[in-house]
Amino acid sequence: MIKSFKKRLTALVTVGPTVLWLGAFLMIPLIYVIGISFLTKNAYGGVDFAPTISNYISLFQSEYAKVFLDSLWLSLETTVICLLVGYPFAYIIANAPKRWKPFLVLLLMLPFWTNSLIRTYGWNTLLRTEGIINHFLQNIGLIREPLEMLYTDGAVLLGMVYALLPFTVLPLHTSIEKLDKSLLEAASDLGASRKHVFMRVVLPLTMPGIFAGSIQTFIPSLGFFFISDMMGGAKTMYIGNLIKNQFLSARNWPLGAVLSIVLIVITLILMKLYTRVGSLEDMA
Protein backbone atom coordinates (compact mmCIF):
# COMPACT_ATOMS: atom_id res chain seq x y z
CA MET A 1 0.00 0.00 0.00
CA ILE A 2 1.02 3.57 -0.52
CA LYS A 3 2.36 5.20 2.58
CA SER A 4 3.58 8.71 2.04
CA PHE A 5 1.22 11.52 1.12
CA LYS A 6 3.41 12.60 -1.76
CA LYS A 7 3.30 9.18 -3.36
CA ARG A 8 -0.42 9.01 -2.92
CA LEU A 9 -0.78 12.36 -4.65
CA THR A 10 1.39 11.30 -7.58
CA ALA A 11 -0.59 8.11 -7.98
CA LEU A 12 -3.78 10.15 -8.00
CA VAL A 13 -2.47 12.64 -10.56
CA THR A 14 -1.22 9.95 -12.94
CA VAL A 15 -3.97 7.35 -12.82
CA GLY A 16 -6.79 9.68 -11.78
CA PRO A 17 -7.51 11.33 -15.16
CA THR A 18 -7.92 7.96 -16.89
CA VAL A 19 -10.20 6.65 -14.16
CA LEU A 20 -12.32 9.80 -14.30
CA TRP A 21 -12.42 9.77 -18.07
CA LEU A 22 -13.42 6.12 -18.39
CA GLY A 23 -15.90 6.57 -15.57
CA ALA A 24 -17.59 9.58 -17.14
CA PHE A 25 -17.51 8.58 -20.79
CA LEU A 26 -17.67 4.80 -20.67
CA MET A 27 -19.09 3.42 -17.42
CA ILE A 28 -21.83 6.01 -16.85
CA PRO A 29 -22.97 5.90 -20.51
CA LEU A 30 -23.17 2.10 -20.30
CA ILE A 31 -25.28 2.44 -17.14
CA TYR A 32 -27.54 4.83 -19.06
CA VAL A 33 -27.99 2.13 -21.72
CA ILE A 34 -29.10 -0.35 -19.08
CA GLY A 35 -31.36 2.25 -17.50
CA ILE A 36 -33.06 3.28 -20.72
CA SER A 37 -33.69 -0.35 -21.66
CA PHE A 38 -36.27 -0.49 -18.86
CA LEU A 39 -38.12 2.67 -19.88
CA THR A 40 -41.04 3.17 -22.25
CA LYS A 41 -40.76 5.02 -25.53
CA ASN A 42 -43.22 7.83 -26.06
CA ALA A 43 -44.93 9.07 -29.19
CA TYR A 44 -42.38 11.83 -29.76
CA GLY A 45 -39.41 9.50 -30.13
CA GLY A 46 -38.23 10.17 -26.61
CA VAL A 47 -38.68 8.10 -23.45
CA ASP A 48 -41.12 8.21 -20.52
CA PHE A 49 -40.08 7.30 -17.02
CA ALA A 50 -42.39 4.34 -16.76
CA PRO A 51 -40.41 1.22 -15.82
CA THR A 52 -41.18 -1.82 -17.94
CA ILE A 53 -39.64 -5.06 -19.12
CA SER A 54 -41.69 -5.12 -22.30
CA ASN A 55 -38.64 -4.09 -24.35
CA TYR A 56 -36.93 -7.30 -23.32
CA ILE A 57 -40.02 -9.35 -24.07
CA SER A 58 -40.24 -7.89 -27.57
CA LEU A 59 -36.84 -9.50 -28.24
CA PHE A 60 -38.65 -12.80 -28.58
CA GLN A 61 -40.67 -11.61 -31.55
CA SER A 62 -39.82 -13.78 -34.50
CA GLU A 63 -38.68 -10.88 -36.69
CA TYR A 64 -35.94 -9.95 -34.21
CA ALA A 65 -34.96 -13.57 -33.71
CA LYS A 66 -34.43 -13.76 -37.47
CA VAL A 67 -32.26 -10.63 -37.44
CA PHE A 68 -30.14 -12.12 -34.67
CA LEU A 69 -29.74 -15.44 -36.39
CA ASP A 70 -28.89 -13.79 -39.73
CA SER A 71 -26.31 -11.56 -38.04
CA LEU A 72 -24.67 -14.32 -36.02
CA TRP A 73 -24.55 -16.45 -39.16
CA LEU A 74 -22.96 -13.64 -41.17
CA SER A 75 -20.38 -13.05 -38.44
CA LEU A 76 -19.64 -16.76 -38.24
CA GLU A 77 -19.22 -17.01 -42.02
CA THR A 78 -16.96 -13.95 -41.94
CA THR A 79 -14.82 -15.39 -39.15
CA VAL A 80 -14.46 -18.83 -40.76
CA ILE A 81 -13.54 -17.38 -44.15
CA CYS A 82 -11.06 -14.95 -42.55
CA LEU A 83 -9.43 -17.87 -40.69
CA LEU A 84 -9.28 -20.10 -43.75
CA VAL A 85 -7.83 -17.34 -45.92
CA GLY A 86 -5.77 -15.75 -43.17
CA TYR A 87 -4.06 -18.77 -41.61
CA PRO A 88 -2.03 -19.85 -44.65
CA PHE A 89 -1.33 -16.20 -45.37
CA ALA A 90 -0.08 -15.53 -41.82
CA TYR A 91 1.97 -18.73 -42.03
CA ILE A 92 3.61 -17.63 -45.25
CA ILE A 93 4.49 -14.21 -43.83
CA ALA A 94 5.79 -15.66 -40.57
CA ASN A 95 8.02 -18.11 -42.44
CA ALA A 96 9.12 -15.72 -45.17
CA PRO A 97 12.83 -15.07 -45.79
CA LYS A 98 14.18 -12.71 -43.14
CA ARG A 99 14.96 -9.83 -45.47
CA TRP A 100 11.39 -9.91 -46.82
CA LYS A 101 9.51 -10.14 -43.56
CA PRO A 102 9.43 -6.50 -42.36
CA PHE A 103 8.31 -5.45 -45.82
CA LEU A 104 5.52 -8.06 -45.93
CA VAL A 105 4.23 -7.06 -42.49
CA LEU A 106 4.30 -3.41 -43.50
CA LEU A 107 2.39 -4.27 -46.66
CA LEU A 108 -0.25 -5.93 -44.51
CA MET A 109 -0.51 -2.91 -42.21
CA LEU A 110 -0.78 -0.26 -44.95
CA PRO A 111 -4.46 -0.85 -45.89
CA PHE A 112 -5.15 -0.85 -42.15
CA TRP A 113 -3.91 2.72 -42.02
CA THR A 114 -6.38 3.99 -44.57
CA ASN A 115 -9.99 4.56 -43.72
CA SER A 116 -12.11 1.41 -43.94
CA LEU A 117 -15.02 3.34 -45.37
CA ILE A 118 -12.93 4.66 -48.25
CA ARG A 119 -11.77 1.10 -48.95
CA THR A 120 -15.30 -0.30 -48.82
CA TYR A 121 -16.34 2.45 -51.18
CA GLY A 122 -13.64 1.15 -53.54
CA TRP A 123 -15.39 -2.24 -53.57
CA ASN A 124 -18.69 -0.52 -54.18
CA THR A 125 -17.21 1.04 -57.31
CA LEU A 126 -15.82 -2.30 -58.46
CA LEU A 127 -18.98 -4.33 -57.98
CA ARG A 128 -21.69 -1.97 -59.27
CA THR A 129 -23.98 -3.23 -62.06
CA GLU A 130 -22.48 -0.50 -64.24
CA GLY A 131 -19.16 -0.88 -62.40
CA ILE A 132 -15.64 -1.80 -63.34
CA ILE A 133 -15.82 -5.60 -63.06
CA ASN A 134 -19.03 -5.88 -65.09
CA HIS A 135 -17.69 -3.45 -67.66
CA PHE A 136 -14.49 -5.46 -67.99
CA LEU A 137 -16.29 -8.82 -68.27
CA GLN A 138 -18.63 -7.43 -70.92
CA ASN A 139 -15.75 -5.93 -72.88
CA ILE A 140 -13.87 -9.20 -73.11
CA GLY A 141 -17.14 -10.89 -74.07
CA LEU A 142 -17.39 -13.23 -71.10
CA ILE A 143 -20.89 -12.04 -70.16
CA ARG A 144 -23.65 -10.25 -72.08
CA GLU A 145 -25.80 -8.94 -69.27
CA PRO A 146 -24.12 -7.31 -66.27
CA LEU A 147 -24.02 -9.47 -63.15
CA GLU A 148 -25.91 -8.36 -60.06
CA MET A 149 -23.05 -8.27 -57.57
CA LEU A 150 -23.53 -5.19 -55.44
CA TYR A 151 -26.43 -5.02 -52.96
CA THR A 152 -26.47 -8.77 -52.39
CA ASP A 153 -25.72 -10.84 -49.28
CA GLY A 154 -22.56 -12.05 -50.98
CA ALA A 155 -21.35 -8.47 -51.35
CA VAL A 156 -21.92 -7.87 -47.63
CA LEU A 157 -19.90 -10.99 -46.82
CA LEU A 158 -17.11 -9.82 -49.12
CA GLY A 159 -17.08 -6.39 -47.48
CA MET A 160 -16.96 -7.92 -44.00
CA VAL A 161 -14.14 -10.34 -44.87
CA TYR A 162 -12.27 -7.50 -46.51
CA ALA A 163 -12.61 -5.13 -43.56
CA LEU A 164 -11.74 -7.73 -40.93
CA LEU A 165 -9.06 -9.89 -42.56
CA PRO A 166 -6.14 -7.89 -41.09
CA PHE A 167 -7.69 -8.28 -37.60
CA THR A 168 -7.55 -12.07 -38.07
CA VAL A 169 -4.11 -12.19 -39.66
CA LEU A 170 -2.18 -10.10 -37.11
CA PRO A 171 -2.82 -12.30 -34.03
CA LEU A 172 -2.32 -15.42 -36.16
CA HIS A 173 0.98 -14.05 -37.41
CA THR A 174 2.12 -13.26 -33.86
CA SER A 175 1.39 -16.74 -32.58
CA ILE A 176 2.87 -18.53 -35.61
CA GLU A 177 5.98 -16.40 -35.29
CA LYS A 178 6.36 -17.40 -31.61
CA LEU A 179 6.24 -21.06 -32.57
CA ASP A 180 9.43 -22.85 -31.56
CA LYS A 181 10.79 -24.23 -34.84
CA SER A 182 12.85 -26.92 -33.08
CA LEU A 183 9.60 -28.59 -31.99
CA LEU A 184 8.60 -29.00 -35.62
CA GLU A 185 11.98 -30.46 -36.43
CA ALA A 186 11.75 -32.80 -33.45
CA ALA A 187 8.33 -34.02 -34.59
CA SER A 188 9.49 -34.70 -38.13
CA ASP A 189 12.73 -36.29 -36.94
CA LEU A 190 10.61 -38.65 -34.88
CA GLY A 191 8.86 -39.69 -38.07
CA ALA A 192 5.71 -37.56 -38.16
CA SER A 193 4.43 -36.77 -41.62
CA ARG A 194 3.98 -33.12 -42.62
CA LYS A 195 0.24 -33.42 -42.17
CA HIS A 196 0.80 -34.94 -38.75
CA VAL A 197 3.22 -32.20 -37.71
CA PHE A 198 0.67 -29.60 -38.69
CA MET A 199 -2.32 -31.26 -37.00
CA ARG A 200 -0.57 -32.38 -33.84
CA VAL A 201 2.03 -29.65 -33.26
CA VAL A 202 1.47 -26.47 -35.27
CA LEU A 203 -2.29 -26.23 -34.92
CA PRO A 204 -2.51 -26.85 -31.14
CA LEU A 205 0.38 -24.46 -30.43
CA THR A 206 -1.13 -21.66 -32.49
CA MET A 207 -4.59 -22.13 -30.95
CA PRO A 208 -4.30 -18.92 -28.84
CA GLY A 209 -3.73 -16.96 -32.04
CA ILE A 210 -6.68 -18.65 -33.72
CA PHE A 211 -8.94 -17.77 -30.80
CA ALA A 212 -7.69 -14.18 -30.52
CA GLY A 213 -8.08 -13.72 -34.27
CA SER A 214 -11.60 -15.17 -34.27
CA ILE A 215 -12.74 -12.96 -31.40
CA GLN A 216 -11.27 -9.87 -33.00
CA THR A 217 -13.11 -10.70 -36.19
CA PHE A 218 -16.40 -11.92 -34.81
CA ILE A 219 -17.15 -9.14 -32.29
CA PRO A 220 -16.52 -6.08 -34.49
CA SER A 221 -18.39 -7.73 -37.37
CA LEU A 222 -21.59 -7.61 -35.31
CA GLY A 223 -21.52 -3.83 -35.25
CA PHE A 224 -20.25 -2.87 -38.72
CA PHE A 225 -23.53 -1.43 -39.97
CA PHE A 226 -21.91 0.73 -42.61
CA ILE A 227 -20.69 -2.28 -44.59
CA SER A 228 -24.18 -3.73 -44.99
CA ASP A 229 -25.39 -0.18 -45.73
CA MET A 230 -22.91 0.23 -48.57
CA MET A 231 -22.75 -3.30 -49.95
CA GLY A 232 -26.07 -4.91 -49.08
CA GLY A 233 -29.56 -4.58 -50.43
CA ALA A 234 -32.58 -3.99 -48.23
CA LYS A 235 -33.34 -7.72 -48.29
CA THR A 236 -31.50 -8.82 -45.19
CA MET A 237 -31.49 -6.79 -41.98
CA TYR A 238 -28.52 -7.21 -39.65
CA ILE A 239 -28.34 -6.37 -35.97
CA GLY A 240 -26.03 -3.40 -36.50
CA ASN A 241 -28.50 -1.80 -38.91
CA LEU A 242 -31.43 -2.68 -36.66
CA ILE A 243 -29.80 -0.92 -33.70
CA LYS A 244 -28.83 2.05 -35.86
CA ASN A 245 -32.42 2.37 -37.11
CA GLN A 246 -33.81 2.44 -33.56
CA PHE A 247 -31.79 5.58 -32.96
CA LEU A 248 -32.30 7.29 -36.30
CA SER A 249 -35.46 6.45 -38.22
CA ALA A 250 -37.60 4.34 -35.88
CA ARG A 251 -36.69 6.37 -32.81
CA ASN A 252 -37.32 3.55 -30.39
CA TRP A 253 -34.41 4.11 -28.00
CA PRO A 254 -35.43 1.56 -25.35
CA LEU A 255 -35.51 -1.21 -27.95
CA GLY A 256 -32.16 -0.05 -29.34
CA ALA A 257 -30.76 -0.19 -25.81
CA VAL A 258 -32.04 -3.74 -25.30
CA LEU A 259 -30.52 -4.86 -28.59
CA SER A 260 -27.19 -3.32 -27.58
CA ILE A 261 -27.32 -5.15 -24.26
CA VAL A 262 -27.76 -8.39 -26.18
CA LEU A 263 -24.59 -7.51 -28.11
CA ILE A 264 -22.76 -6.85 -24.83
CA VAL A 265 -23.94 -10.22 -23.46
CA ILE A 266 -22.74 -12.03 -26.59
CA THR A 267 -19.38 -10.24 -26.22
CA LEU A 268 -19.07 -11.17 -22.55
CA ILE A 269 -19.81 -14.83 -23.24
CA LEU A 270 -17.21 -14.91 -26.01
CA MET A 271 -14.64 -13.16 -23.82
CA LYS A 272 -15.29 -15.59 -20.99
CA LEU A 273 -14.69 -18.50 -23.37
CA TYR A 274 -11.63 -16.76 -24.72
CA THR A 275 -9.93 -16.10 -21.35
CA ARG A 276 -9.90 -19.87 -20.81
CA VAL A 277 -7.42 -20.28 -23.65
CA GLY A 278 -5.71 -16.92 -24.04
CA SER A 279 -4.92 -13.77 -22.12
CA LEU A 280 -6.39 -10.31 -22.53
CA GLU A 281 -2.94 -8.91 -23.29
CA ASP A 282 -2.95 -10.75 -26.62
CA MET A 283 -6.03 -8.83 -27.71
CA ALA A 284 -4.53 -5.38 -27.97
Binding site: L22, L26, P29, V33, I219, G223, I243, A284
Partner: peptide, 18 residues
Protein backbone atom coordinates in the same frame (compact mmCIF):
# COMPACT_ATOMS: atom_id res chain seq x y z
CA UNK B 1 -9.93 -3.54 -22.00
CA UNK B 2 -13.64 -2.76 -22.02
CA UNK B 3 -13.49 -0.14 -24.81
CA UNK B 4 -11.25 -2.52 -26.76
CA UNK B 5 -13.51 -5.55 -26.63
CA UNK B 6 -17.06 -4.19 -26.70
CA UNK B 7 -18.46 -3.63 -30.19
CA UNK B 8 -17.90 -0.01 -31.25
CA UNK B 9 -21.58 0.30 -32.04
CA UNK B 10 -22.59 -0.35 -28.42
CA UNK B 11 -20.11 2.20 -27.14
CA UNK B 12 -21.28 4.72 -29.74
CA UNK B 13 -24.97 4.50 -28.84
CA UNK B 14 -24.09 4.53 -25.10
CA UNK B 15 -22.44 7.91 -25.65
CA UNK B 16 -25.36 9.08 -27.79
CA UNK B 17 -27.86 8.16 -25.05
CA UNK B 18 -25.65 9.70 -22.38
Amino acid sequence: YIPIVIPELVFAIALLIF
